[in-house]
């Protein structure tokens, strides 16, 4: 296949960037999207140009490093996959593909297609944990039974890979799906109860501070989430936050 690529190039965080056109031949339909970019980069290096910088690591859809806004959608046209799991057979010979970084004030561009998602880390640091020391001297794992339904729902929320596709797809660049997934995981488990109120208050406060937008329930995040995290989690967080606001001292 031959493809026309329009890729966002930006030298550094403070530089201004622009879309640049590239042509690439001999793309195999069995390549992953990132392997296609590898081939492009080989081409650029051999011509003496600078290769395109993008985040990636595990290339099996679990680390959450790869991002990319491809043809108008985070992680491209597929559903339930990350960019590294997108294969070129989703495209046709002669297609034009727009490749941009995830856009949000809270995700500043580092270089080209690479963005800084440390805002997510800071949100987790504000309360995304259970305050238990790692001494191993806790109670036996089976001392507190957990309803299977709740354990399963907590797991589903916990499968978030922190890629930021929810933010990228949201018209408001809201991080509600990400934050609510973590809040939900702990609010569904008995271990998360003692700090439930502080957790949700602090995490929402940090989320606002980072400059993410609000949720307007468009549901775009749920559709684009590679792990299929449900919008239900956002409602659960709204409930938790309301409860906490009304009943905290």
């Amino acid at each position: 296949m031959k493809l026309n690529l329009k890729i966002w190039r930006q030298k550094g965080p403070n530089a201004s960037g622009k879309m640049v056109d590239y042509q690439i031949d001999e793309v195999s339909p069995d390549m992953s999207f990132l392997e296609m970019l590898d081939v492009l980069n080989e081409q650029l290096i051999s011509k003496g140009d600078e290769p395109v910088v993008f985040d990636h690591d595990c290339r099996e859809g679990i680390c959450g490093a790869c991002s990319l806004h491809i043809n108008g959608e985070p992680h491209g046209p597929g559903r339930g996959i990350t960019t590294c799991q997108l294969h070129m057979r989703s495209f046709k010979d002669g297609d034009t593909i727009y490749i941009e970084p995830f856009r949000a004030k809270a995700f500043p561009v580092v270089k080209d297609l690479m963005v800084d998602r440390s805002a997510f880390d800071r949100i987790i640091q504000s309360g995304g944990y259970v305050s238990v020391n790692t001494s191993g001297n806790t109670i036996d794992a089976n001392a507190t039974p957990v309803r299977k339904e709740n354990a399963d729902a907590a797991f589903d929320a916990a499968t978030c890979i922190g890629c930021g596709a929810c933010v990228a797809s949201c018209k408001n660049a809201s991080a509600m799906l990400f934050v609510s997934a973590k809040v939900s995981q702990f609010s569904l488990l008995p271990q998360g109860q003692p700090e439930a109120k502080e957790r949700v208050m602090n995490m929402v406060s940090q989320m606002d501070e980072e400059g993410f937008g609000n949720c307007t329930n468009t549901g775009a995040c749920e559709v684009e989430c590679p792990k299929g995290i449900s919008l239900e989690n956002i409602a659960r967080m709204n409930r938790e936050y309301l409860k906490a606001s009304l009943t905290s001292k």
Binding site: K6, H69, G72, R103, K105, S169, T218, A220
Partner: peptide
């Protein structure tokens, strides 16, 4: 919400994931 995304996408396809009225 507008401030949350100062740089818009050059090409965006929101219709793929959400209803226009939302």
């Amino acid at each position: 919400n507008r401030k949350a995304r100062p740089q818009k996408y050059a090409y965006n396809k929101p219709g793929a994931n959400s209803a226009w009225n939302s």
